[in-house]
Design a protein around this nucleic acid. Structure first.
Lengths: 203, 203
DNA sequence: TGTACATCAGTGAACGCGCGTTCACTGATGTAC
DNA sequence: TGTACATCAGTGAACGCGCGTTCACTGATGTAC
C-alpha cells in the first residue's frame, strides 16, 4: 500500500530519489514526533517506494536519519540567520536568534527533537558533532560577542554564556512538550525571562 | 538464559516481585540510557524471571516504565530535598537544589532522561503529570519564594522564575550528553552561570 | 497428627507482527553499430 | 534509420529476529478437616 504513485526516475536521475527519501522521513517525524516510528519501511511507504529501494541511496536506516538531522540543523541555522539579519544591535540580534530558535523547535517538535537523540548504533558511529549544528551555535555566540564589542555586555566569556543560553533555550523547547498537564506559564514569558537573565553580564 | 537464579517467593509474598521488576528496569536504563532497549523481555531477563511473570504485576510494558518514572521522580525529589535541608538562606537553598538536580541527572542519565520521554502509547494515556515530579518542582519554587520573603529577590512571579530555572537546568542536563564532541565549557561553570543569572531579579 | 485440596507464584511454548536487510529479478532507457 | 544490448532505477519475495502478549500448565505452600 503506497501513499503515492510515483514515476520511475529517468536514467541518470536516480539521485533524485535520495532527496525524496529524506523528505519522507522528515515528514514522518513531523507527524509522529518519535524517532522509533520512523522505520525504514515507514519511510519507504511515505515516499511511495519499495523498502529495498532505499539501499542504493543510504547504507542503512541510521544513515537516512543522519541525513535528516544534517538537513534540519541546516534549516535551523538558516532560520536563526534570517532572523538575525537586519538587527540593529547585538542585543536585538541575540533576542531575534533566540526567538527564531524557540519558534523552530515549537513548530517542528519532532524534527527538533531528533537533532539531540542518538540511537545506540550511531552513538558509537557519530562521535563528531554535525557541522550544521555548530554553525547555528556560532550565530548565537557571535551575537553575544557583538554585544561585548558594543559595550552592552561586559562578559569575560561570551562563549560560555552562549552555551548557557543555548542549554536554557533547549531545555525550554524540550521540557514543556514533555510534561503534558503541568501548569506552565506562557512560553513567551518564559523565553523572555531566560533571554533577559542570561544576556545580562555576570556580577 | 537468566542473569540470576531466583527462589520463588513464599505464599503471600508475591508482591515482592513487583519491586524487583521495577529495579531491573531501572538497572537496564542505567546501563543503556535508551528507553527502547528496556523491552519487557529484557526486563524479565534482568530480573531473572520468565517474561509472562511480569503480567500479574503490571498491565503491560508501559506500566512498568511508568512505575520506574514515578520511583525516579521520587528519588530526584528526595535528593533535592536532602540537599536543601540545613540551608541557612533561600539563596543557598536554591543553589543546593540546583546542584543536587544536576548531579542526579549527570549520575543517572538513563533514568533521568526517561522522566521526560513519552511513548506514543502512554502519550494519550498519561495526560496527568506525575505527582512526584510536581513535588520536586515545588521544592525549587518554594526556595525562590523564600528568597522573596528574605528580601534577596524582588521577583514578582517566583513560580515563573522557578519554571525558567527548571527549564534551564533540564536543558543543561540534556543537551550536553546529547552532543558528543561539542566543545562544552566545564559543566559546573555552566550550571553556576545559569543559577546565578536566573536567581537575580528581573529588571 | 495426617492428608486432601485449594490457592498462589511462576513457567514454557506458542501466536502474530513489523522490523532491517538480502537477493535475484524486471522493465524502461539510452547507446553503439 | 533500425536494432541488439548494456545499464540504470526500482521491485517482490523471502530470511531471521526479537518483540508483546496469550494460554494452559506445574509445582510448592498453606489450610480445613
Amino acid at each position: 500500500v503506497y501513499s503515492a504513485k510515483r514515476a520511475v526516475n529517468r536514467r541518470g536521475q536516480g539521485a533524485g530519489l535520495r532527496e525524496e527519501i529524506v523528505e519522507a522521513a522528515a515528514r514522518l517525524l513531523g507527524a509522529s514526533a518519535s524517532r522509533e516510528a520512523v522505520t525504514l519501511r515507514a519511510i519507504a511507504r511515505e515516499a511511495g517506494i519499495a523498502a529495498p529501494s532505499i539501499y542504493p541511496h543510504f547504507a542503512d536506516r541510521d544513515a537516512v536519519l543522519d541525513a535528516v538531522v544534517s538537513r534540519t540543523f541546516a534549516e535551523l541555522a538558516q532560520a536563526c540567520s534570517s532572523a538575525a539579519t537586519g538587527a540593529t544591535s547585538g542585543v536585538e540580534e541575540v533576542r531575534a536568534i533566540c526567538r527564531a530558535y524557540a519558534a523552530f523547535a515549537s513548530n517542528r517538535p519532532g524534527q527538533y527533537q531528533i537533532l539531540f537523540q542518538r540511537s545506540p548504533d550511531n552513538l558509537s558511529r557519530t562521535p563528531q558533532p554535525y557541522p550544521e549544528g555548530i554553525r547555528a551555535f556560532e550565530l548565537l555566540s557571535g551575537a553575544l560577542e557583538r554585544m561585548v564589542a558594543e559595550g552592552t555586555s561586559t562578559s569575560t566569556d561570551p562563549t560560555r554564556d552562549a552555551q548557557a543560553l543555548w542549554a536554557a533555550l533547549h531545555g525550554l523547547a524540550t521540557v514543556v512538550p514533555a510534561t503534558p498537564g503541568f501548569p506552565w506559564r506562557d512560553a513567551t514569558d518564559l523565553l523572555d525571562r531566560l533571554v533577559e537573565a542570561l544576556t545580562r553580564t555576570q556580577a
